[in-house]
Design a protein around this nucleic acid. Structure first.
Length: 272
DNA sequence: CCCGTGCCCTGGCGGC
DNA sequence: TGCCGCCAGGGCACGG
């Protein structure tokens, strides 16, 4: 699933391929992908808009057009392809026809992803963006500590909340808590300021490494974008149930935390 | 205001 | 082999 590093890889590739291209028209095959705006309105408004830049915040992709901002959230399985010829399959839900005679196709097996369009002047008020906190790279220890020390939630669900800190999903949060030696069910207000500093530090390290490993994906524009990273080789706990911990040789366990599959080393990550 | 629950979806997997 | 039922999972709406 795309988390912050995959999104960074996707936008780097999209910038290489379609920055300064112009959207001539758009076809929508699954209306629910288009969010917060009527589909016909969306189709009409986007015609003739040039893609001036593609940015991101957390897991949100931000297309900067002439008069609008287009937000895209890939959720679980959203993918973009840039193609010379458009070949729609059962998972193609939106196709943008570009002035360069190419197509930008949005694929999504689960159909969980969302695409939205808002006038530039209003975009900071859009609910997608408004709820996204700073990424770990810009997060100060005091700000995150303020949030953790006032919360009675478990630390893992708190870190998955994008309004607390942006970018971590289910995979990277397990890796960050393992590297920080914190049990995922630890109540947030029990965590010291020093441990919060560790969480931020480890988040930056893990995400930066994943970005570096995913950043080599750029190939021809017929391949899928940002889905062939190599970060899975760096995972220390996630998906490693039954294997030995790299630190202490205890067995990695899989548990459920607030309904999410969670991997940890019970010896390195002791409950307080 | 905060919390928990259910929903959106479909491929893949376990069970028989 | 095939079919059925269930589950994963980010974010949001809704109800208590």
């Amino acid at each position: 699933m795309p988390e912050l590093p995959e999104v960074r890889t996707v936008i780097a590739t999209l910038n290489n391929l379609i920055k300064n291209d112009t959207i001539l028209s758009v076809e929508v095959y699954w209306d629910k992908i288009i969010d917060h705006i009527d589909v016909d309105e969306f189709k009409k408004a986007i015609q003739g808009q040039t893609i001036n830049d593609i940015k991101s915040k957390g897991k949100l992709i931000i297309f900067v057009l002439d008069d609008y901002i287009m937000f895209s959230h890939l959720r679980m399985e959203g993918k973009y392809y840039v193609e010379d010829n458009y070949t729609k399959d059962k998972h193609t839900h939106v196709i943008f026809k570009l002035k360069s005679n190419r197509y930008l196709a949005y694929h999504d097996v689960r159909k969980f992803g969302k695409i939205s369009l808002i006038k530039k002047a209003d975009y900071l008020q859009h609910p997608y963006l408004k709820k996204i906190a700073d990424e770990p790279f810009n997060m100060s220890v005091s700000e995150l500590y303020q949030k953790t020390s006032n919360s009675k939630k478990e630390i893992k669900p708190l870190l998955l909340d994008q309004s607390i800190m942006a970018g971590l999903g289910n995979i990277y949060v397990d890796e960050v808590l393992f590297r920080s030696k914190i049990h995922p069910e630890t109540i947030a207000n029990q965590i010291s300021e020093k441990q919060v500093a560790n969480i931020i530090e480890n988040s930056c390290q893990v995400l930066n490494k994943a970005i570096a490993l995913g950043g080599t994906t750029i190939r021809t524009y017929t391949s899928s974008l940002g889905v062939s990273g190599k970060f899975q080789n760096e995972l220390l706990v996630h998906t490693k149930a039954g294997e030995e911990c790299t630190e202490c040789h205890h067995k990695i366990e899989k548990i459920k935390v607030k309904g999410r599959g969670t991997y940890l080393c019970p010896n390195c990550q002791k409950k307080l």
